[in-house]
Write a protein that binds this DNA or RNA. Structure first.
Lengths: 293, 293
DNA sequence: TCCATTGTCTGACTTTAGTCAAGCATCGGC
DNA sequence: GCCGATGCTTGACTAAAGTCAGACAATGGA
């Protein structure tokens, strides 16, 4: 790892925790412990399961429970039974909670404005651009790709989202029933693999590997959630599957894709896949790729 | 102020305090309260006055005193009477303190590496570049330019540094005695102005304005500390002086510069100064500029 | 020389943040 | 319908962070 990059990051971390961090703690207090203020932000417009809050903020369940009770006592949030599972609690902001959140937003704006006011227009633009880049890359770096059963809840949700996206984008629509090239158990260990990409606990992408011969495999169902595009999720999924394929002793990887999926096309080229002749009868495929491992 | 820029900064602040901030608190603990760890960083190689620590970290004096005592009890720092003023205390790291600091540095490196490891080489480069840009601009934004007596301690130090830099850079050296174009009282209110730029309390630049006629003035002694170059300090000094000149009812601003100072040349052009004929007999001047306000 | 100010230290607090274990209801699979 | 796992709550703690007021010595200007 490049020494000068490490140094840059260290300097950045220190500056940012001291300057931005310290400012945020002051701006976001409003006579309330910081942990509570952060909770108000994390709840957002639609409400969240307590369980999600816990994993996102990395808090102890007891501690979080108390924080939630305290906000409830202040009349800022409501607690309700969460959807299907009777054990879960769902929190949402009350009218007063929403107003409180707006007050924090105004403070945040003031903080942001105070960071900008000494800069001229050109510098402001450069700052915003650079911050956007840092943000995108830090998020990208915290995406975790891990194997998961292809019929787990999140895996199913990813696949469903993928299929409905295909239905919307393909000229003639898409019907899973007509594409039996990769059923769940094709992509389950040990003959296959399914991976899910997660960002802050939320599933934001997936991909599968299916063994098709002694030394050949096929990549299937590579998908990225719209909210996570441009962060290299698909690339990481692909590389993870490729590494697994090597580990399984495969020598050749293949895949097919539809002409509507231009980003996928570009990704496969960039990752060393070369276009080959049709190797299957998938009715939705227009292009076929191969990579020798 | 551009709404989308504010939004970007807000998003950035939130991400960074949550992600980087949270990571730092874990990495930098080493079985010691965070406040103590931060103190070790802030003390640095040469030692600092307790008073400076207090203003830099914004801590209560009682609290800080205790933190210092605790680090002293651990054998990491030494306390000495500070220079001239018998009330001040100066802290510096002991040998053990320096070793401890190095250990923290290694942890910081590990943290930085953990942020990089999921990225590929191209992304790492982009992240480091963008972080450098953000860092530079945030620092630039926290520079404060304010009027100060031209014979104050910091003003003198700036001017001395400026003169010795001129001596090093001019072909034939530089001798202040031969340049009586701007003595301290020429740049003192109300007929003139002297400003000092500060970053975290340290003086990092200066500049003076001297009235030379009913509606004309001259810009003098614009200097930026080497540690603060590329942050737009000189530009802000210049603009501050220009605004003051307008406030004093001046219609024309002039200045001269030496051919060795190429950056200055570029700055004056960019800020709307136009080259004119020689208007004084300064032996060190090669170019003369003017701007109508 | 006096006196208000400044820099540091000490004692006596409070609040925030966080941990750990036990308890209770609900769920999913058998 | 039983049982281990899961989601949340409660009680009982601890450590860290921070506040406030008072004490004391050194300073600097009247």
């Amino acid at each position: 790892m490049d020494e000068s990059q490490l140094r840059q990051i260290r300097r950045f971390n220190r500056l940012v925790t001291r300057r931005v961090g310290a400012l945020e703690t002051n701006y976001l207090r409003r006579g309330r412990p910081l942990a509570e203020a952060r909770l108000i932000f994390e709840i957002g417009a639609d409400g969240v399961d307590v369980r999600t809050l816990r994993s996102r903020l990395g808090l102890d369940s007891g501690y979080l429970s108390r924080l939630v009770q305290s906000l409830k006592a202040q009349g800022l949030i409501e607690l309700a039974k969460g959807g299907g599972d009777g054990r879960r609690r769902r929190v949402s902001l009350t009218r007063r909670g929403i107003a409180e959140r707006a007050a924090y937003d105004r403070l945040s704006d003031r903080l942001a404005a105070s960071m900008l006011e000494a800069l001229d227009e050109a510098e402001r633009g450069r700052l915003a651009t650079a911050m956007g880049e840092v943000e995108r890359l830090i998020r990208a770096a915290s995406v975790e790709v891990a194997a998961e059963a292809p019929n787990s809840g999140d895996a199913r949700r990813c696949l469903d989202a993928y299929f409905s996206e295909l239905a919307a984008r393909f000229e003639g629509g898409f019907d899973v029933a007509k594409d039996d090239s990769a059923r769940a158990d094709d992509m389950a260990a040990p003959s296959g693999l399914f991976v899910v990409a997660r960002l802050d606990g939320d599933a934001v992408g997936c991909g599968g590997l299916k063994r098709t011969g002694k030394a050949t495999g096929e990549i299937k169902r590579v998908w990225t959630a719209p909210s996570a595009r441009g962060m290299g999720v698909a690339r990481r999924v692909l590389r993870t599957l490729e590494a697994a394929a090597r580990g399984m002793g495969l020598r050749t990887l293949r895949l097919d894709t539809n002409r509507a999926l231009t980003e996928a096309h570009a990704l496969y080229n960039k990752e060393g896949f070369r276009q080959i002749a049709r190797f299957n009868d998938n009715p939705y495929a227009d292009h076929w790729f191969e990579k020798r491992l």
